[in-house]
């Protein structure tokens, strides 16, 4: 590994300021979106904003943007593993059937049980 890869990249304070303001703006957007009923897209919008915020934090505050390629590879591997966890768990949830053998959408997984309880 060359010396250059070890050297710290100096980030100007203006960049940090811009990022924190963007994050605060996105937090506001999340709150605003929570009061707008978008139907099944409620969760999609909330998660999209959260993902964008997390990406900004990782890229700038955690210096991933200025890191060597091997560090980026490790980060991508972590994200890939998270995708495995979520994706393969979904292979269960999106193919579940109820006691009659009828498929039901994932959004009802959690609603199914309290209804049965009542």
């Amino acid at each position: 590994m060359s010396e250059q890869e070890h050297s710290e990249h100096i980030v100007p304070p203006a960049t940090y300021l811009a990022i924190i303001l963007t994050l605060l703006f996105l937090t506001g957007t999340t709150i605003w979106a929570a009061f707008v009923n978008l139907g099944r897209f409620n969760i999609v919008v909330a998660l999209a904003i959260a993902t964008l915020k997390a990406t900004l934090v990782v890229l700038f505050f955690m210096h991933a943007k200025y890191s060597p390629k091997r560090t980026k590879l490790i980060i991508l591997a972590g994200i890939f593993w998270l995708a495995l966890l979520l994706g393969m768990t979904l292979s269960d949830y999106i193919t579940r059937v109820d006691y009659r053998g009828v498929r039901f959408p994932i959004s009802q997984v959690s609603q199914q049980l309290p209804a049965q309880r009542g």
Binding site: L84, M88, S91, D92, Y93, T95, R96, V97
Partner: peptide, 22 residues
């Protein structure tokens, strides 16, 4: 080893399709 975990759960309420894959 990371892709086999639900074989501990074949007889829970997980879907038959997921059970086949795992």
């Amino acid at each position: 080893g990371f892709l086999v975990w639900t074989h501990h759960m074949f007889l829970t309420g997980q879907s038959t399709y997921a059970a086949l894959v795992f």
